[in-house]
Design a protein around this nucleic acid. Structure first.
Ligand SMILES: [Mn+2]
Ligand SMILES: [Mn+2]
Ligand SMILES: [Zn+2]
Ligand SMILES: [Zn+2]
Lengths: 152, 152
DNA sequence: CGCTGGATTTAGAATTATTCCAAATCTTGA
DNA sequence: TCAAGATTTGGAATAATTCTAAATCCAGCG
């Protein structure tokens, strides 16, 4: 049972698209499915590659289109944790990101609950949301680095 | 008295470049000066425009070069708060950024002192540094928005 | 049902931001 | 002084994204 195909599971997607002034289309559904079936942070290009598996005729322009619509509907987050290609995150819970400076992987990170505003805002600024990211080595790259140090 | 021209003021720059394995060059000094004489967050293109005022022959490639060297020496920060062109920040104190979603301006924000790690890191991750950004309306754009609402 | 206007998809062109390249120029230090 | 290596430069190349215009789709209407 492919969860995204059951009628009841489609409803929130359909609803959110409609509310955002968009139509429900097979491409948008498919891009959304592809994105939610793995908890990582693919680039548009990577989403395109994955999307072609189940929908070989889809175009890259459409993938950009769909991602844009999904972001505007609040179904997906766009994260700008590093320079270069934008990445897309299907996890809509509040969370931070860890970016591995060696391999470029992005991981979701839990935020310590109820710790209040992370920055002190001068008068006049209206905050919509925060973005918190940590940079460093992921477990794999940290281990590899240690090995290299030991060997040399 | 142009502050960046006094010998004693150049020393830290010279030193940091040398320590980073770079040479001290008029272009690198000039790009650094241009960047530090205003506390904002210009793109490489904007730095190029400013740099040409005092050094008309400088090329865009050199500006990218110099910015790269300055970042590698820890004299300047590269901030990736939004998609699109990278921005450069001459403020090396620890601070967060506010990004105005309307006009795209970036502001430095003080971080509440000693509040500890902003994210909970699972075992194996080694953190090098954090990046904290708030998104919303800057004072100007907030005011403009309120006016529009009142008028319409 | 068949039409029609607007939304969507598509391939490819265009644009933007950055990096690469190779030649000219500039140090540094034997 | 001179050679080797670093740096600068303009232009070409690349990467990521947006734009364009034609084809297709589809909801609502007669
Ligand atoms: Mn995420
Ligand atoms: Mn800053
Ligand atoms: Zn890694
Ligand atoms: Zn603003």
């Amino acid at each position: 049972m492919r969860s995204a195909s059951r009628k009841q599971d489609q409803e929130p997607l359909t609803q959110r698209l409609t509310d955002g002034g968009f139509r429900f289309t097979p491409q948008r559904e498919h891009v959304y499915t592809v994105l939610t079936e793995r908890r990582d942070h693919p680039t548009a290009e990577e989403v395109f590659i994955r999307a072609k598996k189940g929908m070989p005729e889809i175009s890259l322009a459409t993938v950009y289109n769909c991602l844009d619509a999904l972001v505007k509907c609040g179904l997906v987050k766009q994260v700008a944790v590093q320079r270069g290609a934008a990445r897309f995150c299907p996890n809509m819970e509040e969370h931070g990101h860890f970016y591995c400076d060696v391999c470029g992987s992005v991981f979701d990170m839990e935020l310590p609950a109820g710790q209040g505003a992370p920055v002190t805002m001068p008068k006049g600024f209206t905050v919509d949301h925060y973005e918190i990211a940590a940079h460093g080595f992921c477990p794999d790259c940290g281990a590899r680095k240690k090995n290299v140090e030991t060997i040399s």
